[in-house]
């Protein structure tokens, strides 16, 4: 089921004019910010498909920038996102490109913060709902509706059992989980959608597991960063 929730049909509460091109874009930007773990210093945004042809009229550019600033979909400051970004010291560059086979509403976001750089690609699938399809070179598929953990780690025997064991002890249920790796014993990314909110202790325990490089927590219904 692509849509799991009544509030993905009636909702979100949002600033217009387009749920896919404005509200969905805010959520794409916000999710990417949370993957980075904080406010980007530089952001390059590349639009594909319908995003590329109609982003100006829909304020998709304003919306993604607003998301990178961690605004929610109904924040009236979305209209002034360019000014707000400048004030916050975030440099933004926007361009359009073509690519075969991508969903019609797709954006790639290349974000930099200090010496950190990530590339997040996602699509807006309608009604403000999104799907993140890749992070750096990993293929993923998550919606950011649920509390979501991204765990960057090395591909090692038993590491998934160690992660899920921490969930079990935190009494948190896993609703969806996927793993992608670049090569055998190489870098891997595990995405876990949890039915419950996760406390920082649970995340710390996962981060402290051997061969885990970085953990980030995405929870768009709450405000603020949780790196």
């Amino acid at each position: 089921m692509r849509f799991k929730d009544v509030f993905s049909i009636i909702g979100p509460s949002m600033v217009g004019p387009s749920s896919s091109h404005t509200a969905g874009a805010v959520r794409l930007g916000r999710t990417a910010r949370h993957v980075l773990g904080g406010q980007p210093e530089r952001a390059e945004i590349i639009f594909y498909g319908s995003f590329a042809t109609t982003y100006r009229g829909h304020g998709t550019d304003l919306a993604i920038i607003a998301g990178l600033l961690d605004y929610d979909t109904d924040d009236l400051r979305i209209r002034e996102a360019f000014e707000q970004a400048e004030e916050a010291g975030m440099k933004v560059q926007i361009r359009s490109a073509q690519k075969a086979g991508v969903h019609p509403n797709t954006a790639m976001m290349i974000l930099e913060r200090g010496d950190q750089r990530i590339v997040v690609t996602g699509s807006s699938i309608g009604g403000g709902n999104i799907e993140i399809v890749s992070i750096d070179d990993f293929d993923v598929k998550f919606t950011a509706i649920y509390p979501t953990l991204l765990i960057f780690h090395a591909d090692r025997r038993g590491i998934l059992a160690e992660m899920t064991d921490i969930f079990k002890h935190a009494d948190a249920n896993i609703g969806y989980m996927e793993v992608d790796r670049k090569s055998r014993s190489g870098d891997a990314l595990t995405v876990i959608e949890s039915d419950e909110m996760l406390d920082s202790e649970c995340m710390d325990r996962i981060a402290e597991l051997p061969d885990v490089h970085r953990v980030c927590f995405i929870h768009l219904t709450a405000k603020g960063d949780r790196a």
């Binding site: 979100p12 749920s19 896919s20 404005t22």
Partner: peptide
């Protein structure tokens, strides 16, 4: 500000 039902359009 509006509520998408099911979309903003």
């Amino acid at each position: 500000r509006i509520i998408a039902t099911p979309t903003a359009g």
